[in-house]
Amino acid sequence: MNNQPLLSVNEVSKFYGARIGCRDVSFDLYPGEVLAVVGESGSGKTTLLNCISTRLEPTSGSVMYRMRDETKRDLYQMSEAERRFLMRTDWGFVHQNPADGLRMAVSAGANVGERLMAVGDRHYGNIRETAIDWLGRVEINEDRVDDQPRAFSGGMRQRLQIARNLVTGPRLMFMDEPTGGLDVSVQARLLDLIRGLVRDLGLAAIVVTHDLAVARLLSHRMIVMKDGHVIESGLTDRVLDDPHEPYTQLLVSSILQV
């Protein structure tokens, strides 16, 4: 069963007028696999992520997804209702800025419970219990359940965003610079947490990052992008320890050593 890819991206291109967002990107993602997309800013990482996660329609190419009933569906041939249902049940999307992925004016508990209510859960006690359980799993104290995310620190907001996405038991997570803007000790704890959750839940994930250390820690495989093209791909350790392309070599050698 697991030798079938969960997600197949076939020659996806996105043009902004004459400019290239990303061009002819193809890859497969298997269940439980974490793929990192790295590259400098402006290289088309986020455009690619948005194209795959149905947030931005590509100019050409297709994205196939294996649904829970094992049928393969082209994401852009689905109705909008189906796509949005998929997004809030089978998928998660972690934004770089937690304020984009959270409702800042409602409590942490309601943020986590929203997806449950969206799929028809109508029992307050159960919703709250599940929310508290998930807050615990992302190391947020139970007594913060009724606080609004605006009273949370950056790291807590990011962890809350992850809990909110995971509550429906998704199979695929998209993460756009999940550790961007956090200080290093908080970053380390968050990476630990993500690694643990991904392993325990058997999640597949696509992580966009410019931070090679994050890619090294989280991902099994990585693709390197430059000017909208994929210039190198392979196992993370191989790409980082033995980069073939000159640009990848430059990228790897640019890591600051402390």
């Binding site: 409702r103 409602v106 409590s107 508990g109 309601a110 419970g113 929203e114 209510m117 109508r122 307050y124 919703i127 709250r128 359940v145 009724d146």
Partner: peptide, 10 residues
């Protein structure tokens, strides 16, 4: 329902 949840929580 998120709004109603907030009501009960508060």
């Amino acid at each position: 329902h998120v709004k109603l949840y907030e009501d009960i929580a508060t």
